[in-house]
Design a binder for these strands. Structure first.
Lengths: 218, 218
DNA sequence: CATAGAGGTGACCATAGGGTAATCGTGGCG
DNA sequence: CGCCACGATTACCCTATGGTCACCTCTATG
């Protein structure tokens, strides 16, 4: 979309456009499924133009991964900045995530849509993002449990967001990010609280000592 | 591994070996990163042999995806078959999943390691697996909430398993699947319980999520 | 209006890799 | 002991595509 068709553009603008267009192309066709020609075509230019702005296909992809990861992270950071309670942070965090998915659809696909990696450097870029999200989540988790356990749960939370999103994105369903955030964060927060409660009880075994045994059931 | 180096093998055995070897190769190098020659080499044969057993690269990959998904599903099904309480099912389910990851390492990578898809058919195969896992999880979730909400939570649970696993696998860390299952299922189950009934004890938040959130929207 | 230089192009190279055709060799069977 | 069929190989084709080079064409500027 936007401008196109062999219209002359100042370098910086062209670069932006290429990034924008490349995101769409890669998100839809994956790294290997999309050729540099595809990108160029989508931008209404020819291949050499792309190479005037990016050294290689990898370079372009990496730049994209970077930009896109940055967007997600800042979205989450700014959203949760003003929150007070842990529960509030949780909900705002998920909200930011799901809003990002809903709005920056292609970005989600690029990062988590299995677009085609199999490359250490690409994996690192993605891992770095999830790790940072996880890191920002860690404070929500009771500080009195094993750090490794903390990390596990943090990554589990990231997984929640990813899992919930993927289904909707794959499905093509339109969804209300805020509703989703409420539903999911309710579950997540309750889960986190429950974990923080019992005095660690590390190494609990089959003959579990005492967990919170809230009778009820169903 | 196993036999190799130009040793003659009966067709069915060779086929099995090829599947086994191809799993490793694809898991490590991704779909595009691995050539049919790579697969053949890893099996100690030449390309045409591979093509005698599989029509195309896609075909081979699809067969792999299928086999591997099947393994995960049956692992979960059989593991949770004898469970009684919801909590028990949850823990056994996660246990089966994490054991599968720990043991069938390459399988996890193939399915969820972003090995390189960008292909609708491949995506379908993977989606089918997660969908089935999610389906098997759904009964754990309160039946009195919106079905769509149920599905969301089910997929969120799958995301938990995936997120927790990915970190460890990417990290190369060795881990104890059973411990992980306990940690994670504690959180997950608590989360599920909280959703199924009005906020348990402890002051929740203002806009308490009444049990039935038949949030119209969409 | 000449011109420099940035923006852009067409044509091309080189190689990887999916897929196939023709051929070989060996072990079991009559 | 010969032969056939199955397992395997060598050699090859051909398309797609990452990447480059030489050249063109606007437009701003003196």
């Amino acid at each position: 979309m936007v401008t196109s068709m062999s219209i002359r553009l100042p370098a910086s603008a062209r670069r932006e456009q290429l990034l924008e267009v490349a995101l769409q192309v890669f998100a839809r066709q994956g790294y290997h499924g999309a050729s540099m020609n595809d990108v160029a075509d989508a931008a209404g230019v020819t291949k050499p133009v792309v190479y005037q702005h990016f050294d290689s296909k990898r370079d372009l992809y990496l730049a994209l991964l970077d930009a896109v990861g940055e967007r997600l992270l800042t979205a989450i950071y700014t959203a949760t900045a003003g929150a007070t309670s842990g529960k509030h942070v949780t909900e705002l965090g998920f909200q930011a995530y799901f809003r990002w998915v809903a709005h920056d659809h292609d970005a989600f696909l690029l990062l988590f849509g299995g677009g085609g990696k199999a490359d250490d450097e690409f994996n690192d870029a993605v891992r770095k993002v999830t790790a940072q999200v996880a890191e920002s989540i860690k404070p929500l988790i009771a500080a009195d449990i094993d750090p490794e356990h903390q990390r596990t749960l943090a990554h589990a939370l990231v997984g929640i967001a990813e899992g919930a999103s993927r289904r909707l994105v794959d499905n093509g369903t339109d969804f209300d990010p805020d509703l989703l955030a409420r539903q999911v964060s309710d579950m997540a927060w309750a889960g986190l609280r429950a974990v923080s409660r019992p005095p660690t009880a590390a190494g609990s075994n089959p003959d579990s000592p005492r967990r919170i045994r809230r009778a009820s059931t169903r």
